[in-house]
Write a protein that binds this DNA or RNA. Structure first.
Length: 266
DNA sequence: CGACAAGCCTGGTAGC
DNA sequence: TGCTACCAGGCTTGTC
């Protein structure tokens, strides 16, 4: 379930392990993850180049190759990165879908168990973001409360699905949206048009704080504050605040977990 | 065996 | 009437 904090973790991982190494060859184990690019083109563009720096926007990770192109990684629900060295580094990895083999015998492995992730190339990150209709990154400094209010203005759907809409704000998924609603004490069925300006301002501040905290830990659930609901988000879970059993319901086809006592319907 | 989880795209439709 | 926003369904596969 890679959302913004998890992708931020992949970014740090790639930065620490896979930059400035010359790429000898690229292999694609399953072409279904490729978007508007062929395996042959990907290999051609990356051969003899090295990854020099990375950028993240929402749930997308971009890695600049020295050849001038950007490798675009989206992780779907089950994607992740891993680096290996030596023979057999990916032999034990059934879900290695894309592998960059470096000259120094290291490799960057993009894993994707359910093949819902996407790999692409772009020459212009800004244009890619615009073409995919992505809204501002949820941690963008320019995304202040009044800007969020403007983005939500005129919307009438459920707040939860609206926050998960990547064309409005990029980065939040099902899991962190539940946590955000929990921290704001908003019932998951709350609709956007029920919020006043003050509530949107609070929502914005809590969203930033939550995502910054989670991103610092690379989305590692074990390191999140004890006051958070997220690690308990299942039918065994109880509310870290009041101890009530957590409940779930479906909002736009997605499971929403919440505390029935702390998150009252308005 | 069928249900379910997740992100996101598609297509039908509800609502202004 | 016409457009947009909304939402259910499908993709995918491992797990229960």
């Amino acid at each position: 379930m890679p959302e913004l904090p998890d992708v931020a973790g992949f970014k740090s991982y790639l930065d620490a392990n896979a930059l400035h190494q010359r790429i000898e060859r690229t292999s694609v184990a399953d072409g279904r993850i490729l978007e508007e690019v062929t395996g042959a083109k990907l290999a051609r563009e990356l051969k003899d180049a090295s990854l020099e720096k990375t950028r993240r926007h929402g749930k997308f990770l971009f890695a600049a190759a020295s050849s001038g192109t950007w490798l675009v990684l989206h992780f779907g629900m089950t994607g992740s990165l891993r680096c290996g060295r030596g023979r057999g580094a990916e032999a034990d990895d059934d879900h290695a879908v894309l592998v960059l083999h470096f000259r120094n015998d290291g490799r960057l492995i993009y894993r994707c168990r359910r093949l819902l992730g996407r790999v692409s190339l772009t020459t212009d990150v800004g244009r890619f973001i615009a073409a995919h209709g992505l809204g501002p990154d949820a941690l963008d400094r320019e995304l202040k409360p009044d800007r969020l209010a403007a983005l939500l203005a005129g919307r009438r759907g459920a707040l939860k699905s609206t926050l998960m809409n990547q064309s409005i704000v990029a980065g939040l998924g099902n899991v962190y949206t539940d946590e955000l609603l929990f921290q704001c004490r908003l019932h998951p069925a709350t609709h956007v048009d029920e919020l006043d300006a003050e509530e949107i301002e609070h929502l914005c501040k809590v969203m930033k704080r939550m995502l910054r905290t989670a991103a610092r830990h690379g989305g590692d659930l074990g390191q999140l504050p004890r006051s958070w609901m997220l690690p308990r988000r299942d039918d065994q879970g109880d509310c870290p605040r009041c101890g009530s059993d957590l409940e779930s319901l479906k909002i736009s086809g997605r499971t929403a977990w919440y505390c029935p006592r702390c998150q009252k319907r308005p």
